[in-house]
């Protein structure tokens, strides 16, 4: 039996990896992947807590989180493709038309 705290630590590590990825990586696809990591850290937490409390609400949340993540990627890739067609790059530092 793995104690609850192990799951929480795992999810915290995954979440922080995601946050750091968003902040330091410059490739939009990698940024998208990092955000997926953040959402999946949430899922680990929810499943672990749901089992701990013997309460179904956490597992229901996971299904919704997966759905949201899937639709996010659909919308996000569409925007990225539209940008790539006009600029031929997916490096976020290249997008600086709009400025102060």
């Amino acid at each position: 039996m793995v104690p609850l705290s192990y799951y929480v630590i795992l999810s915290a590590v995954v979440f922080i990896t995601g946050v750091v990825g968003v902040l330091i990586r410059r490739n939009i696809i990698i940024i998208l992947l990092s955000i997926e990591l953040m959402l999946n850290a949430t899922n680990i937490n929810f499943v672990a807590f749901s089992h701990y409390f013997q309460n179904i609400a956490g597992q229901v949340f996971v299904f919704f989180a997966l759905t949201v993540a899937a639709s996010e990627v659909a919308v996000g890739l569409a925007i990225i493709i539209a940008l790539y067609r006009s600029k031929s790059t997916i490096n976020v530092d290249e997008f600086q038309l709009l400025k102060w």
């Binding site: 999810s11 979440f15 955000i35 953040m38 959402l39 937490n45 929810f46 807590f49 949340f61 949201v68």
Partner: peptide, 14 residues
Amino acid sequence: AAGLLAYGISLVYG
């Protein structure tokens, strides 16, 4: 922000 929101909710639930 959605990622932060989801993780925050998971902690409150926990």
